[in-house]
Write a protein that binds this DNA or RNA. Structure first.
Length: 300
DNA sequence: AGTTGTCAAGCTAGT
DNA sequence: ACTAGCTTGACAACT
């Protein structure tokens, strides 16, 4: 098992998701931001390795406006060396990488323009991972999308669109159960038809499920990952107390986390902690893992 | 220096 | 009709 957190590190005073307004777009602005973001990404990854965190989600804002028509800069070429250096650091340290495009990415929308924009955005995410020369275990995760008052048709559209995507996207794309529309069962039905791996989100599953236990759910999700995809990725969070259902917790709930780890000790997977305070909770989680699982990434 | 309205993009549920 | 929430607040103009 590798453990990690998404996108932002609050300890090192440097972020890899710095952006700017579309109105102030210029080639110079873009290059300056990307350079800053890549440098910070490297620092974050170094911090993570030092602290035993070997799973990281790279921010979608790494290259601002990359999929926007305004962007004409060949950023992957311009920063070729930096991307490769980051990639080789990732591979050398066997860090698992994911990316999670925004909520606007919907390949099952009935509106063609939204699907087209979404594909551009997926191309961008895959291009980042390709520029780092990462293999197909580095994943880009999305939800199925909207329901549009007809779930069956919406699922059919998802499948049709998926099938016509370029291989460069297909080899990285995975789907994740959400907390209001498409549960694990829906994801598994889709997997059966197109073999796309399913990321299991424990918190979403708690909000929306068909009565599957955590163990049964993980067992089913795990089967959707083949060798070229790497081991199962799981997103973990817990409910923020007293907040609206579906709101992610600010801090890790150690009791809840211990219970989850105890329950799932017979499975190996990479675990993403979707907790607002980021590496702070992740470091606490590592301590729990060391206690319970004898966490040692070298075993895997 | 600190505060606050605003920012490319969509959808759903709750109020 | 409007807003919060979503994988993640940060930017930029103002006081």
């Amino acid at each position: 098992m590798r453990l990690g957190y998404p996108c932002i590190n609050r300890s090192i005073g440097c972020t890899a998701n710095s952006t700017f307004r579309l109105a102030s777009y210029s080639k110079q602005n873009l290059l300056a931001k990307v350079e800053n973001n890549l440098n910070c990404l490297m620092k974050i990854l170094e911090y993570n390795v030092k602290n035993g965190l070997f799973f990281f989600r790279i921010s979608s804002d790494l290259v601002p406006f990359a999929s926007h028509p305004i962007c004409k800069v060949d950023w992957s070429k311009h920063f070729e060396k930096k991307f490769k250096a980051i990639g080789s650091f990732i591979m050398k340290n066997r860090i698992r990488i994911s990316m999670h495009p925004d909520q606007f990415v919907l390949i099952n929308s009935p509106r063609r323009i939204i699907v087209q924009r979404s594909i551009k955005e997926l191309e961008y995410h895959c291009k980042v991972l390709d520029a780092m020369e990462l293999d197909s275990t580095a994943k880009v995760q999305i939800h199925i999308g909207g329901v549009y008052n007809d779930k069956e048709k919406a699922i059919d559209r998802f499948i049709t669109e998926y099938e016509s995507l370029p291989t460069s996207i297909k080899k990285r794309l995975v789907i994740e159960n959400d907390h209001i529309s498409y549960g694990l069962k829906d994801c598994l039905v889709i997997h059966k038809r197109i073999k796309i791996p399913v990321i299991f989100d424990t918190f979403h599953h708690k909000c929306l499920n068909n009565g599957e236990s955590i163990n049964a759910a993980i067992k089913m999700a795990k089967k959707t990952w083949s060798k070229k995809d790497g081991i199962l990725m799981i997103d973990y969070s817990s409910q923020k107390p007293k907040a609206k259902k579906g709101t992610h917790a600010e801090h890790i709930n150690i009791k809840h986390f211990k219970k989850f780890i105890e329950e799932t000790k017979n499975f190996d997977f990479d675990l993403m902690l979707e907790i607002k305070d980021k590496e702070r909770s992740a470091l606490k989680a590592i301590r729990v893992l060391k206690e319970i699982r004898k966490y040692n990434r070298l075993l895997f």
